Amino acid sequence: MGNWIKPIVYGVGGILGTCAALLVTFQEKLVYVPVLPGTTKGYSITPASLHLNYEDVWLTSADGVRLHAWFLRRLPHCADPTILYFQENAGNIGDSLGFTRSMLENLKCNVFMLSYRGYGASDGYPSQAGIIRDSQAALEHLLQRTDIDRSKIVVFGRSLGGAVGVALAKNNPEKFSALILENTFTSVLDMAGVVLPPLKRFIGSNDPRILNFLVRSPWNTIDIIDQIKQPILFISGSRDELVPPAHMRMLYEKTKHNRRCMFEEFPKGTHMNTWYMAGERYWQVMQHFLEKELSSSESK
């Protein structure tokens, strides 16, 4: 038996060692993908090319990084909600303009689209601490504007953007009205085992695991989401091919003490196209949530 055990042990150790080495070497490129293969860092589509009413906004993050954003305005000086939009990890905000244009039309809102550091026209290099600073700069900008209703700021985040939104909500419990999360992961620690299955027993958020220290951007949303005070709408695509839909359910389960949280599942929804595959019901769910929560915040 001994002759058989050694090769197996060495083989398993070799696989784990290789996975750990890949994680250390390439993790930032897996977590942050500002440029999709075959594209350039710039915007292939802009609000101008879609004939949208918009403003180029330039911000400076707390550590001095220059950031770019688009403020998509439905009507000047209106009382509509303003959605602070945080994108997924891959591509740039230009890739999301089809979605945000539909958001403008269906939700009758403004949309503020932030380019994280290292994405689009923003300077710098992405990191968890840096992107949290960037999100704070975006929120502070909106809170200083006089042409929006600052009592109706709503944060929307898809995938990585959901993790960004939760971190921002935890740090700013009284500064915006509601949070919408779509196809968001529990943590990058848990996603490591999805991308590299041999690491599942050694990296994860359920308990301290031996290789967790290797992950530089853990985005451990599952550990902080129960601290969020605002109402949360969870939008989950059942056919999400990148983030297991169970992650969204686990995040929701952690917020059951907050009776203003809602969970909506869309059977045909994929990671990026839940809104498209779900059709009108997607916007109806979101509109109902916003009308309910924004009206209740006005009455306080």
Rank of each mutant, 00 (worst) to 15 (best):
A21L: 15
V24L: 15
T25M: 10
F26E: 12
F26C: 13
F26Q: 13
E28G: 14
E28P: 11
E28S: 15
K29Q: 15
K29P: 11
K29M: 13
K29H: 14
L30S: 12
L30N: 14
V31L: 15
Y32P: 09
P34D: 15
V35Q: 06
L36C: 08
L36R: 13
P37L: 13
G38I: 01
T39A: 11
T40K: 11
K41W: 04
G42R: 14
Y43K: 12
Y43M: 05
S44G: 13
S44M: 10
I45K: 08
I45W: 08
T46F: 00
T46H: 03
L50D: 02
H51E: 15
H51P: 10
L52M: 07
N53L: 04
Y54Q: 05
E55P: 00
E55M: 03
D56M: 04
D56V: 03
W58D: 13
L59S: 12
L59N: 08
T60I: 04
S61K: 04
S61I: 04
S61H: 08
A62E: 05
V65F: 12
R66S: 12
R66Y: 04
R66E: 03
H68K: 09
H68L: 00
A69K: 07
F71L: 00
F71D: 06
F71M: 11
L72V: 02
R73M: 06
R74E: 01
L75K: 15
P76Y: 11
P76R: 12
P76L: 10
P76D: 09
H77W: 01
C78E: 13
C78L: 13
D80E: 14
P81T: 10
T82W: 08
T82H: 10
L84K: 14
Y85K: 07
F86H: 07
Q87L: 06
E88A: 14
E88K: 13
N89H: 14
A90V: 05
A90E: 00
A90F: 00
G91E: 04
N92M: 00
G94C: 01
D95P: 01
S96Y: 05
S96H: 07
S96L: 00
L97S: 04
L97N: 03
G98L: 14
G98H: 13
G98V: 11
T100L: 06
M103S: 11
N106R: 05
N106Y: 00
N106W: 03
L107I: 08
K108A: 13
K108D: 13
K108Q: 13
C109T: 07
N110D: 04
N110E: 01
V111R: 11
L114P: 09
L114K: 12
L114W: 10
L114M: 09
L114E: 05
Y116F: 08
Y116M: 03
Y116I: 01
Y116T: 01
R117A: 01
R117D: 02
R117S: 02
R117T: 06
G118V: 00
G120F: 01
A121N: 05
S122P: 11
S122Y: 09
S122I: 03
D123N: 08
D123L: 07
Y125N: 07
P126I: 01
S127W: 06
S127L: 06
S127M: 06
S127Y: 07
A129E: 09
G130C: 15
I131F: 04
I131M: 04
I132R: 05
R133C: 10
S135Y: 06
A137N: 05
A137Q: 02
A137D: 07
A138C: 05
L139N: 03
L139W: 08
E140S: 07
E140D: 07
H141Q: 05
L142A: 06
L142G: 09
L143N: 10
R145C: 00
